[in-house]
Design a protein around this nucleic acid. Sequence first.
DNA 1: TGTCCGATTGGT
DNA 2: CCAATCGGACAG
Length: 208
Amino acid sequence: MVKLSRDFYVRIDTIKVARELLGKLLVVPDENGNRVSGMIVEVEAYMGITDKAAHSYAGRRTPRNEVTYAVGGHVYVFFIYGMYNQLNVVSGPADHPHVVLIRALEPVEGIETMRERRGPMPDKNLTSGPGKLCIAMAIDRTLNAEDLLGEKIWLEDFRKYRSNEIATGKRIGIDYAAEDAEKPWRFWLKDNIYVSKSQNREISSPPA
DNA sequence: TGTCCGATTGGT
DNA sequence: CCAATCGGACAG
């Protein structure tokens, strides 16, 4: 399996990167070096300094979000609500703090490991949310700023989806972002049961 | 140093 | 609908 190259992540069109992340395979080897992986089925784009929902809004730059200013292809992992981690993929060139939040996966490899980490529950709940998938994949802040071209966490090509298989809608949990809360910057695979169970209202049909 | 609150989740 | 739970951002 071949890792996605730097070129994939460095593109300046964050929406395009976000949509193309759907169907990619996220791989994080476990403590024994065995592959644990899932296909990305839901993402959200955070559009940098002009996006009121983004941690880098208005050019905010702190120890926490420093890596979002790095060149594309690194991960931004942050801790939220006192108990959850969230995984983001940094995109674009350096000093262009756009990221794509990985909101849900479909388990592919190492499902038993995921079940152990998550505890007893239906498989469809293992990775159907940004906090859940970080537990299932053992992603926490120790992976923050890791390079996706390295050996701890990476992405591979897996499946291709057409535009008509992708739904678009508002991002979730960002009511504080005023008018930017309305932006159609959330993307998911239609009918995939691992998409997070929220307002799956589709705003518009995807472009051609 | 003190206060406020969150890119969620799971249970009521 | 609401509590859990704590690090980070920012004010003072």
